[in-house]
Nucleic acid binder design. Structure first.
Length: 410
RNA sequence: CGGGGUGUGGCGCAGUUGAUAGCGCGCUCGGUUUGGGACCGAGAGGUCGAAGGUUUGAGUCCUUUCACCCCGACCA
């Protein structure tokens, strides 16, 4: 894509009403547009990042037999009334509205009840289980206070998967498989080394649920980690968890972290509350075991923006960058740039070609702000060769086009 | 929801003791430039978050209200 075709413009100054680093950089570079507190639009560059994150998550969910679907944002109250979660005392983030005939609706903040209601008609027999279904959906939550840019919004994109099982053992086994799948996701997102599976507070029916916490200064949680990084505990449950696993609190060091995933065993609670049963092999009616698995897609994007940025701008991991290469065209080199653009595109390398009629300094500054992994310069000075540098290492090398292609792995 | 702060062109800001708005960036046109956000000249663009009030006169004072940011509480 050519830079001249992007409708977004980069900004030298961040808006004064944003403090969070992720929001400042994402707005300055043209990835997001703020509509109101906690509500952001994703412009073409930002959408590409989201789609790349989604694709990684999608592949790993498919690898554990997840089936993708999409549920609705408008929800009927009945299923939520059965589980008690329509009550604003129980769930205080509901956006509620009404149809013209005055009947009530809720705007989706989660989908456990919704998917169970849907499954009522599909799960009749033990032969129908297990079921693993996931979606990417916009969640709407009327948070008292939105903050930290796109890391805690009132409208955000989430991957939520639900698994339904005939037995607890089957649920437990699958739950552990999803933990491994999640680890692969964070690994591929470049967060592997800094992301921990932690004990977290859960409902009465599971002593602990698990969170995936990524070390991040902008996070809202405090994580306690041991020296060889094999144990990480959320401060919320520090007392109980240290007792449970028998570690001494003094052996743990604390760090700020952001919750990038949350998995949860509901067990048969929803099934029983909603009166949804399957027929077992022996002909009896039995409740369904439910577990849910969330990853905040937009939050992950915010965490990555925060963690990897430097004083010049964003730094995207190769796996989710909107384009692989920022092509800086200097001087009267349009045809050379075009040929290189074609060549790279044909070999599967995505390129943002800065074809604008602006001075080189501005292009270099924008290359850094936008944060693509690789920068290539085409200039008359280079006499047909190209200059390569990576976003994380300012050392430049002059290469032939062939050598460049080899370097980019083609 | 409690506390603190801020709202002036797209963005960042200035407007002293009240006299109907100014700077930088960006934008348009012309020219000179062209490897690290150039320079010269000429322009366009705001009624000062909103409503009400005081006053001959309000961006500046008063009241109400809305929005945004930060801290806290909350986050099933």
């Amino acid at each position: 894509m050519k830079s001249s075709q992007l409708f977004t413009k980069t900004l030298k100054d961040a808006p004064a009403d944003e403090q969070a680093k992720n929001a400042q950089l994402l707005i300055r570079a043209g990835y997001v547009y703020k509509v109101m507190a906690g509500v952001y639009a994703y412009t073409p560059l930002g959408l590409k990042v989201l789609e790349n994150i989604k694709q990684i998550v999608r592949e790993e969910m498919e690898a554990v037999d997840g089936q993708e679907l999409i549920m609705t944002n408008l929800q009927t109250p009945e299923p939520w009334k059965k589980t008690g979660r329509w009550s604003e005392e129980v769930v205080d983030v509901w956006f509620k509205t009404k149809l013209q005939d005055d009947s009530e609706l809720g705007l989706a903040w989660s989908h456990e009840e919704a998917i169970m209601e849907m499954m009522r008609g599909f799960v009749k027999s033990y032969k129908d289980l297990p079921i693993k279904a996931y979606q990417f959906q916009t969640k709407l939550r009327n948070e008292l206070r939105a903050k930290s840019g796109i890391m805690r919004g009132r409208e955000f994109l989430m991957k939520d998967m639900y698994s339904l099982h005939a037995t607890e053992a089957d649920m437990d086994e699958y739950y552990d498989k999803v933990i491994d799948a999640y680890k692969k996701v964070y690994e591929r997102l470049g967060l592997g080394g800094d992301t921990f599976v932690t004990f977290a507070s859960g409902g009465a029916f599971t002593k602990f649920s698990h969170e995936f916490q990524t070390v991040c200064d902008a996070g809202e949680d405090i994580l306690y980690i041991n020296s060889d990084k094999t144990i990480a505990v959320n401060e919320e449950v520090l007392e109980d968890a240290t007792k449970e696993i028998g570690v001494n609190r003094d052996e743990l060091t604390s760090t700020k972290s952001a919750e990038v995933g949350n998995i949860f065993k509901f067990g048969t609670e929803k099934s029983e509350q909603m009166d949804i049963y399957y027929t077992a092999e022996d002909g009896t009616q039995k409740p369904i075991y439910l577990a849910s698995y969330g990853i905040g897609i937009t939050r992950v994007m915010g965490v990555i923006a925060e963690k990897f940025a430097d004083d010049k701008g964003l730094i995207w991991p190769e796996s989710i960058a909107p384009f692989q290469v920022y092509l800086v065209q200097i001087g009267d080199t349009f045809e050379q740039a075009e040929a290189l653009y074609e060549k790279l595109s044909n070999s599967g390398v995505t390129v943002l070609w800065d074809d604008r009629d602006v001075r080189p300094g501005e292009k270099f500054a924008d290359a850094e702000l936008i944060g693509l992994p690789h920068r290539i310069v085409v200039s008359e000075k280079l006499e047909g060769q190209v200059e390569y540098s990576s976003r994380t290492d300012s050392e430049k090398e002059v290469l032939t086009v062939e050598a460049l292609l080899a370097k980019l792995g083609n």
